[in-house]
Design a protein around this nucleic acid. Sequence first.
DNA 1: AAAAATTTTTAAGCTTACTTAAAAATTAAT
DNA 2: ATTAATTTTTAAGTAAGCTTAAAAATTTTT
Lengths: 219, 219
Amino acid sequence: MSTATENFVKAIYNNNSHDAHNTKPGNIAKKLGISSAAATDMAKKLAAKDLLNYQKYQELQLTEKGRKMAMNIIRKHRLWEAFLFKMFDMSLHDIHKEAELLEHQTSDLLANKMSEYLGHPKFDPHGDPIPNAHGEITTTDTSFPLSQAAAGNTYIISRLTSDDKEFFEFCAQHKLKYGHEIKVSKQFKNNKMTELSVHNNTILLNEDFTTLIYVNSTK
Amino acid sequence: MSTATENFVKAIYNNNSHDAHNTKPGNIAKKLGISSAAATDMAKKLAAKDLLNYQKYQELQLTEKGRKMAMNIIRKHRLWEAFLFKMFDMSLHDIHKEAELLEHQTSDLLANKMSEYLGHPKFDPHGDPIPNAHGEITTTDTSFPLSQAAAGNTYIISRLTSDDKEFFEFCAQHKLKYGHEIKVSKQFKNNKMTELSVHNNTILLNEDFTTLIYVNSTK
DNA sequence: AAAAATTTTTAAGCTTACTTAAAAATTAAT
DNA sequence: ATTAATTTTTAAGTAAGCTTAAAAATTTTT
Ligand SMILES: [Mn+2]
Ligand SMILES: [Mn+2]
Ligand SMILES: [Mn+2]
Ligand SMILES: [Mn+2]
């Protein structure tokens, strides 16, 4: 399948899993940076290939075949990220950019070799789960955005859900990395700000960031 | 530039360097598996982009800009081959197939990281030279096809110039690998066959193979 | 329940990268 | 030097993936 097809299917899958899920063509179009006319067009073509269900004005739904394709691409994407992150000294943003392209030109054989080399990792460097070769995610996600964390508790960063360069640069600079421990000292509910300490440094984050940083309670 | 453009430019370059050089659209078309009409079409488009010189019925010639592009892609191709060959246990044919796709989706940054990781290798696993980041090949090639080797002498395999799976399987099976030493025992000029020994095994090769295997004299 | 605003779809058109079939030019053979 | 064979070019057409602009349907607001 073409890169355009794969990105489209992937966008639907990601939209359904994370975000509030408006899976109509217009919203998918926004994520892909194309017109909604193009997205409607593509939706019809993919429906003809049995990758999704399309009915005028309704939400798009991946078929089982479509979901499998999405998982296969996401697997390759996250394996590339994990691989490039480990092998070379590349930033979270850079590995994402490379993976966005490489994911479409990677054989299952190569993906499996990478997975094996890495010891079949369960998570990529952003903390997102890596589907196995059968397209399954076996881990269960109990994390929640930092905006919902309680003051006084410590947490482990479990995911950084963005592809913005500045966000990652900020995170890197302040040691906000996958797996690191943080302590929330205050939640300013009205101002939607969160005060926390990382490695003995206190920082104040606004909602733009605290909804992108996911954490798990340290049981 | 698109994958189609890059493959076209690369095909012209490769045609001019190795083979007897008929660089007219029809011959390039054959190598790429497209119609000559498509190749003529593409040639005109690339001429408009100053990647090559096109005149009706004449041979295609890369401009300096075109040559630079070809070298950049070939560099990425061969770095991928070297990298995949080293990292994973993949055959010469498999690494070529993967490289053929990955070469078009690789940033200069990533290519440089790979080169650095590998210690800036001068040759890929087929024995082909890897251009540096400036698009230059600094090594000089003194090798010649095995078909032209003299009986009684020993040689070092310097290149395996094919992308055929069966050819590589045969080579792998008989230890005909880049860098290995062989001894030519007889040249059957009339039958265009070459008898040689590799690792104490004697084999007889026909011209189909002896023109693909390049060697250097052991001074 | 209308009216207004927003979103989705349709329609028409563009570029890239191909195809086949024919016409035109070149190259090889007599 | 013609003729024949081969190759290249032109012409016409297709599919994928886009665009913008308009029409149609949905959703929100009043
Ligand atoms: Mn992508
Ligand atoms: Mn990721
Ligand atoms: Mn290629
Ligand atoms: Mn090679």
